[in-house]
Design a protein around this nucleic acid. Structure first.
Length: 333
DNA sequence: AATCAGGAAATAC
DNA sequence: GTATTTCCTGATT
């Protein structure tokens, strides 16, 4: 499974740039799990299958590989939150959102009234792409790196490698890419990746390919959006990842809690209204926090000490009936 | 053995 | 100065 598919018959620059390798696409679904750190088995996890549109699963990949990329633009129109960098807080208010519903609600392709099949296809496509972009954005927040690999410094590259390796249970290959910047990385062919890392170079290359494509899409969408909307209000809902200030632990915990889809197995609400949450996997949460803050030695002992500092500040407290690993936000939102 | 509670000092910004 | 991070002692689950 390691020959790049020359995609996109209409070979304009859009298409060829967007085109992902066959590897990338296989990776997209093979390796996605709800909680990367918890991954025990590699199972296909495409929600389309679980939600009962089996017939559309494979065709959508054909489309990804062969169609021109106008649907990507539609995605950007349907999901303005994807357009600007880091500004999709609002869509994450709904923990278990369904991208298909999203698309319908936001009026995806209103001009296709008669063509149910095409419409469904587009829904699945936008869903898949949306999920990928969402994952990338999540990873960016987590690692505190930019979505576009071209901007990465050597430290960012190492972080990404560490993350990707951990995410997909790859052998550690960071050393082979030690002194490379994102720019270097982006310029490398799949072959060069394999030379650096015979074991997983192709996989890493494929993943980087996905990131590159996503960044390119994002940039294009934001250009379109800026033209259309005058570039205003894209930054209105500044979240912790673009506010410039270093993130606070309580904010970070809130972010994890906001994404049960991704982190529900390591931290979850016991009572969202009261702000009571439970850390289900202390080591895991600590690892994520350490990753975010560049503290490789972070552990739950230290993380919990930081939480306890919040007691006297009135940010977090122990619930009335104290339970192990259970805390409560003093001011639930 | 893992968590919890704080004091105290170190560190990053 | 703030917000942790690091380290530690002792208590609790």
């Amino acid at each position: 499974m390691s020959h790049p598919v020359s995609c996109l018959s209409e070979g304009e620059e859009f298409g060829s740039r967007i085109g992902m390798t066959a590897d990338s696409l296989v990776l997209l679904e093979r390796n996605r799990t709800e909680d990367p750190w918890e991954m025990v088995e590699t199972k296909p996890n495409i929600e389309a299958l679980e939600r009962g549109v089996p017939g559309l699963y494979f065709p959508c990949y054909d489309m990804l590989l062969t169609e021109d990329a106008t649907w990507l633009v539609k995605v950007s129109e349907a999901s303005p939150t994807l357009a600007g960098p880091m500004n999709r807080m609002e869509s994450q208010e709904e923990p278990e959102q369904c991208p298909v519903i999203d698309s319908q609600e936001q009026g995806l392709s209103p001009g296709l009234e008669g063509q149910e099949e095409e419409r469904s296809l587009e829904q699945v496509q936008s869903m898949v792409v949306g999920e990928v972009l969402k994952d990338i954005e999540t990873a960016c927040k987590l690692l505190n790196i930019t979505p576009d690999p071209i901007d990465w410094n050597t430290a960012n590259v190492q972080k990404w490698l560490l993350w990707t390796e951990h995410l997909y249970r790859l052998p550690h290959a960071g050393k082979a890419f030690q002194e490379l910047t994102g720019k270097d990385l982006c310029a490398m062919s799949e072959e060069e990746f394999r030379q650096r890392s015979p074991l997983c170079g192709d996989t890493l290359h494929a993943h980087l390919d996905i990131w590159k494509s996503a960044a390119w899409m994002k940039e294009r969408c934001s250009v379109i959006d800026t033209k259309a909307a005058g570039g205003e209000e894209l930054w209105s809902e500044a979240d912790s990842s673009c506010s410039g200030q270093p993130i606070h632990l309580w904010q970070f915990l809130r972010e994890l809690l906001l994404k049960p889809h991704n982190y529900g197995r390591c931290i979850r609400w016991l009572n969202k209204e009261k702000g009571i949450f439970k850390i289900e996997d202390s080591a895991h949460v600590a690892r994520l926090w350490g990753l975010r803050k560049n503290r490789p030695a972070m552990n739950y002992d230290k993380l919990s000490r930081s939480i306890r500092q919040y007691y006297k500040k009135g940010i977090i407290r122990k619930p009335d009936v104290s339970q192990r690993l259970v805390y409560q936000f003093v001011h639930p939102v």
